[in-house]
Simulated scan of single mutants.
Amino acid sequence: MTQNPNLVALSEAGVSVWLDDLSRTLIASGGLQEQIDTRSVVGVTTNPAIFQNAISSGGGAYADQIADLARSGADVDRAITALTTDDVRSACDVLAPVFEASGGADGRVSIEVDPRLANKTAETVEQAVELWNLVDRKNLLIKIPATPAGVPAIADVIAQGISVNVTLIFSVDRYREVMDAYLDGLDRALRNGHDAGAIASVASFFVSRVDSEIDKRLDAIGTPEALELRGKAGLANARLAYAAYQEVFETETRFPDLQAQGAVPQRPLWASTGVKNPEYPDTLYVSELVAPNTVNTVPGKTLEAYADHGWVNAESIIGQGPASREVFDALTAVGVDLGDVFEVLEREGVEKFDQAWAELLTATSAQLDANR
């Protein structure tokens, strides 16, 4: 099979393409392997909404296992854990050759802790360890939300030698807390006798949702100055995040000491990169977020759009910090409360995953009841 040239160019520019989707059908049909072979896909991310869609609409792909779980007397939480960890374990096996070839940088598959634990530190850590042991694959990443309760959990989990995908990051201030948590966790992991080189982490910085929320507020303000800023905040925010990443991992003095002991940087990951406003180019949050040592988690529809007509803007991030700060200054000047924006986005992010999980619980419970 031949790799798509647009996605090859993106990969060669330093962006790892991870598919933001997973289902048992995708794995069993060979669809995931085809994405690896033709679309430069080198990783997979999941979230509660993805699992809700996969299991609720998966038809016969899950029927036999659900029937077995029903006969064994499994409750709905145990059933969902079994279903999701089996899918993630299988995806880890498909991506194992990528993991080995990349030296552990890619070939990763993410599974998220129960979103109902987003505000519970100890319980998040407990489930992270449980999921790590259940999947039992070294190319796994445990997704933990960057809530106030999640940030200390990130450090605690990394300290146990577990690789982490930090999710639901919206602001650069919170992102800095996440990077600090990663470094704290590495310090403790080394003291605990773990191999720092075996611990990986990415920080999932959400992009399109920032534009959706801020554009709504700009429309409400309605002045020419406000309307001119639509569609600029998401990219500016991500570019400021990359500048912060460079400070912490390329300039400041703390990381080199850890790197000398085998640690690797926590890569920025661009999440929520499907365009929600049809007025914007459909590959905007891929083509305009190109920089070395980054990851882009791409929904299937966006991946195909990029394969068809995506472009690489090699100057889209590096050196864009000052211009991005000007965008944020202009947003503040027209009356956008950025602090409130990020609080709303974090709260709504947790709520959306909670809702998807609740729908998954309801649908799976009904399927279990039908087999008892």
Rank of each mutant, 00 (worst) to 15 (best):
E326P: 05
V286R: 11
G104W: 05
L360A: 04
L235I: 14
E343T: 13
K138S: 13
T84K: 00
V290D: 04
L22G: 07
Q65K: 14
V341M: 08
R174T: 14
V135Y: 07
D77L: 03
A305W: 12
G58K: 13
A118E: 08
E123A: 15
Q266P: 05
V172K: 04
D180K: 02
N371I: 05
R71I: 11
N371Q: 15
D340C: 07
T364N: 12
S29M: 07
N192P: 03
V290L: 09
F206P: 09
L218Y: 03
W311K: 14
E123R: 08
P292A: 06
S212Y: 06
D308P: 04
L331R: 03
N165L: 10
V350W: 08
Y280F: 15
V15P: 09
A366T: 04
A291T: 01
L229P: 01
G222N: 10
R347Q: 14
S72M: 01
A189D: 02
I66N: 06
V264G: 00
Q65V: 07
S287P: 01
L168S: 13
T253V: 12
P256V: 09
I221M: 08
S72N: 02
V286Q: 00
L134C: 01
E213A: 14
R191H: 04
G107K: 00
A54P: 08
S163C: 11
T273Q: 12
A263G: 05
A122T: 12
S16H: 03
F342S: 07
Q127G: 06
L303D: 05
Y306A: 02
D340S: 10
G234D: 12
A79G: 06
P265C: 10
S163K: 07
